[in-house]
């Protein structure tokens, strides 16, 4: 019975992983990853890791994947070219992957770990349940636990900073009107955005100032902006 569940979950995990890699549409990749994560949760349950399985379903398949779905829906599907940028890239990839698989398997299976060929030792009834994991986290691993909470806080702040829409100086500036990096440092008043109704002299002056302001930030990004906006 355990073997049947293992092979069903293993097939689900492998098929989900292949679906992630092979789907052309990123949305289907995300859905395949959700199926893969559920299969992995079943495997965790077979390994008597109940709390890790629950965290896998709730945190991974629940929260992280919702974030993915939001971003995929926001960005939309991108058109990936199907040709290889490096000749023979796929062939080399599959060769390397095959050798990587053989190497990892050989390294682990030929090791001196005698318990690998067994079910593992008999464990007490509460092994891997939330109480046991909580005891471990709060007694033996308190510092890594606190460090991971600080890491989560830093990641949240960093994501807000990264995904934040830049403040638009002057108001009414369209997102495409002012390239990235055009914010002026403090103490320098930002040049007014060129408007169509302005007189010719001031319009030309302000657009030149805007262009020079756009170059002190990230020149490469600002340079690519007009071409890729088409």
């Amino acid at each position: 019975m355990e073997a049947v569940i293992f092979f069903l979950a293993a097939i689900g995990a492998v098929v989900g992983a292949i679906g992630v890699v092979a789907s052309r549409n990123p949305f289907y990749s995300v859905l395949a990853l959700v199926a893969h994560l559920f299969s992995l949760a079943v495997l965790f349950l077979l390994l008597t890791a109940a709390f890790v399985a629950a965290a896998q379903v709730v945190v991974y398949a629940g929260a992280v994947m919702v974030l993915y779905v939001f971003v995929v829906a926001y960005v939309g599907s991108t058109h990936e070219p199907t040709f290889d940028p490096i000749p023979g890239q796929r062939l080399f990839t599959f060769l390397l992957a095959f050798f990587l698989f053989v190497e990892i398997s050989a390294a682990v299976l030929s090791s001196a770990l005698k318990a690998l060929g067994t079910h593992g030792p008999d464990v007490p009834a509460g092994f891997g349940n939330p109480a046991a994991i909580g005891n471990l986290l709060l007694e033996e691993f308190l510092v890594p636990f606190e460090a991971s909470s600080v890491l989560l806080l830093i990641a949240a702040v960093g994501a807000i900073v990264l995904a934040n829409r830049k403040r638009q100086a002057g108001g009414g500036a369209t997102p495409s009107g002012r390239p990235f990096g055009a914010e002026c440092p403090e103490g320098i008043t930002p040049p007014p955005a060129p408007r169509s109704g302005d007189p010719v002299v001031s319009s030309g002056h302000s657009s030149a100032a805007g262009a020079s302001g756009g170059q002190h930030g990230i020149p490469a990004l600002a340079k690519q902006n007009p071409g890729s906006a088409q």
Partner: peptide
């Protein structure tokens, strides 16, 4: 199931 099955699946 032996633990080695899980390791091979993980690889």
């Amino acid at each position: 199931m032996n633990i080695s099955w899980y390791i091979v699946l993980s690889a």
